[in-house]
Design a protein around this nucleic acid. Structure first.
Lengths: 347, 347
DNA sequence: AACCTCCGGTGAAACGATTTAGAATCTGGA
DNA sequence: TCCAGATTCTAAATCGTTTCACCGGAGGTT
């Protein structure tokens, strides 16, 4: 039965209260909680009974104050609305669960300020470690976290001098794969649709695109860049409208999008404005999220091992937390092009 | 510059250390942190300087132990991979941010055990309040949370006797809208594709479908139920295969899916197996997630005010936390059918 | 009988921040 | 010189849990 304390003071029971009702000392209650094997069965049951009767809930603040550590990890994600990141999160979760830790998801939504607020709060909470897909991987706040004792693993990005573990996919290579595929299909004018430039993934994929383009000996001005405000479906639609607005002789016959959300938006706008894919415009996306294959025209996309990315990142973090001899490691996965109708089909 | 403490003891600085280096008393440091207006500018700057030099990070455990409250909310979501819930989460986040609170996202992934673990942990952390889309809204653990002083708001579900605030959308009505739409289009054999039955939304939408069906005077056995293991794209594909396996005279001409993920999977399987939508099979989804409109055939779907749902839920929670005279409230939004090509187009 | 070893249990001292009462110091006017 | 007001100080208590040195008794060994 639920105990309703005198109205107005619903202060929850403490170990002291439990000790009193069970008729044992405070230390014994703590032993029941933390080293039950050291307590005789009869006493243990008496204490457990008292805890149930009083509705005792261990106070994690007090516990972690005393022990100096918590049982949680956090993943600060760049965009919780992007299925790519939720798949990464799932991989992290599996590893965290296996290690008996709780995982908190925080969404920075691409905003530095929000990311900063989350990080500060997590640091104050003394989480065991933080996984982050940063808005800007060179943000000094990330160094500061690590210097002050919170292990950090960078997800889906790498850093130059790296005093961090990181897990990433080769975005430059991904960009090359996409554009080489379009060049192979005979396209001579291609748009790279991505943005904002502040996002490293966007820059790297664009860089890969340019490399492939110039190495094929094509004139640089025929690879145009369409910058969008955010890597979202809405921004993809907007980019589609700008594309239509271009004079026909400048208009690209194919678009490589920095991610699948943009690609889906662009695809949607293209079709609903009466043009065809890939006839009027071939489209390549990036991430190969589950929805890419189910799109109006199944989307050619650059696949990343999303869940493995998360799992591996969490493993690195757990190793850093647990092993004093931990060595930082930069894992780089290789992306893979998945060709579908949006670049292959008949117009 | 970063302070690297003597190797092996990276214990972070406390208010006491800050006070010592700034040459002020402990109480003054506390005032700088909590009531900066009471401290003269020069002292305040001296203290802030000391904090920066020492790399002081306030210990949230100690703070919340002493004050008895934290600065965080949590949303325990049913499926972080479903864009519907991430949109709801975004609404919650906006409200939390406006109130200066941090929001932690936890994913139960449809599993009771995982949900329970998250709830227990959040309760021990003494979060200010919990928003939850529960696996089972009648789970006694939810009552227990609330009885022991953690306010809970139920999102996207309602409960009978309700001693909780809740925000939901009328799922029975949503089911009716979907099936009435199919009946209007002349369909005489319809499948309801959803699962598992343990999810209330799935049951309610199915119930609405049945109501519309029988009220139209159609024979109950012509509304068949295809139960799937989980409300996911993969399950939708699997359902598509089972549908094909039915004898032609039993095979439905339309399907109403419990959510858009299932619908997209079903759509994808239908098209890739060479049949047409809506010619061979009309499809109605539920949630109207952003990807629904961008699907192979734009998807007719039942729209819910996702973000408003989250925002309103968070507001109710904040009211419950802040206002001692708080009255529980059950908000029910009305869904709306958005008709697109998957039920309208030419075969 | 004296000694040792376990086992189960005790009680006080931390952990770090906040809060409070009451006293001390400083500033600039009257 | 003295006072009012602002600012800071000292010292101590408190939040709830964990930890650790210690203790009493049961049982075995010499």
């Amino acid at each position: 039965m639920a105990i309703t304390p005198a109205a107005g003071s619903p202060r929850s029971a403490s170990v002291k209260d439990v000790a009193a009702t069970a008729g044992v000392s405070l230390g014994t209650v703590s032993n029941v909680l933390n080293r039950p094997e050291r307590v005789s069965r009869t006493t243990r049951e008496r204490v457990e009974r008292a805890m149930a009767d009083l509705g005792f809930v261990r106070n994690e603040s007090a516990r972690s104050l005393r022990t100096g550590s918590t049982q949680s990890l956090a993943y600060v994600m760049l965009d919780a609305g992007n299925p790519f990141f939720t798949d990464v999160a799932r991989g992290i979760e599996l590893a965290a669960e296996a290690a008996g830790l709780s995982l908190f998801l925080c969404n920075s939504d691409g905003r530095s300020a929000r990311e900063g607020a989350h990080l500060a709060h997590l640091q104050q909470q003394r989480v065991q470690g933080i996984l982050i897909t940063p808005v800007d991987p060179d943000d000094p706040q990330i160094d500061q976290l690590s210097e002050r004792g919170t292990p950090v693993v960078i997800v889906d990005r790498t850093r130059a001098g790296s005093s961090f573990c990181s897990v990433a996919v080769d975005d430059v290579l991904g960009g090359r794969l996409a554009v080489e595929h379009l060049i192979d299909a005979g396209h001579k004018r291609v748009a790279y649709v991505g943005g904002p430039e502040s996002i490293g993934q966007v820059r790297d994929r664009g860089e890969g695109a340019r490399q492939a383009w110039t190495e094929a000996g094509l004139p640089p001005e025929d690879l145009i860049t369409l910058s969008c405000e955010a890597p979202t479906v809405a921004a993809g639609r907007a980019a589609g409208e700008r594309l239509v607005g271009l004079p026909a002789r400048r208009r690209p016959t194919a678009a490589f999008c920095a991610n699948d959300l943009i690609a889906l938006g662009l695809l949607q706008q293209t079709i609903s404005s009466g043009r065809t894919v890939p006839g009027d415009l071939a489209i390549v996306g990036y991430d190969d999220i589950e929805f890419a294959a189910a799109a109006a025209v199944p989307l050619t996309s650059v696949r990343q091992p999303r869940q493995d990315l998360g799992r591996r990142a969490a493993e690195l973090l757990l190793d850093e937390v647990g092993d004093p001899a931990h060595q930082h490691e930069q894992v780089v996965f290789t992306p893979e092009l998945v060709a579908r109708a949006s670049t292959l089909g008949r117009p």
